[in-house]
Amino acid sequence: MSDVMVKAEGVHKRFGANEVLKGITLTVDRGEVMCLLGPSGSGKSTFLRCINHLEKINSGRLSVDGELVGYREANGKLYELHERVVAQKRQEIGMVFQSFNLFPHMTALQNVTLAPTLVRRRGREEAERRACELLDRVGLKDKYHAHPVALSGGQQQRVAIARALAMDPKLMLFDEPTSALDPELVGEVLDVMRDLARSGMTMVVVTHEIGFAREVADTVVFMDGGVVVEAGSPAEVLGAPKHERTRSFLSKVL
């Protein structure tokens, strides 16, 4: 078992003529928490989506836990993976979205048990027991049977985190998980994420919460215009940024 969870080497991604990622190279170690910062449109979401193969990369190499994302390599040739195999690999990567994306026609509990019962074929009882544990863990003990409309944004996002955790992922991706929340609800979601980080989960977090990055991140990466401008410990990147672009960005969000 290697210690590297995510390895990106010169990852490029284009949408038509628009080159969004222009050679991203970085590694995320097992158990590491990486925070991705950068102005809007710099390609942060696109990079996260590539890790989960929601987007196909155009060139470079991207691997998760030692296996290429979306391809299989044999005899120096790349073979596209079957959709079924891609789906299998996604089971091991949890993703939390800015807009929560809970399934509105299901209760909190059903949201959390759907994938374990359908994809992992766990028994209903076992899946529900585990779902309750997870909902308790994110502080939603009394909301098992609430539909998403009846929950606040912060509660919805915590359900979404529990839903992702129910698949026992080895990697969690967060795409601006608190950006759609009212200010007073941000804390409750960050608390859950902080706990998760302490438990040793490998996390890649796109966020504008500098305080959270400073406290929780092992590595902070600043992206702009589809490239990594600067990467290092929170003290280096946030405390003593080397690049002008990083400095001007930080002065705007702080």
Binding site: A87, G94, F97, L102, L118, A160, R163
Partner: peptide, 27 residues
């Protein structure tokens, strides 16, 4: 049905048929 619904389901490892049956069609 918003695309985010299919993406959330895909990120949980559901295949296309499962996404259609359990997430998209009910909505």
């Amino acid at each position: 049905v918003p695309e985010g619904q299919s993406e959330a389901a895909a990120s949980l490892g559901l295949n296309r048929l499962q996404i259609m049956r359990k997430v998209v069609l009910p909505q």
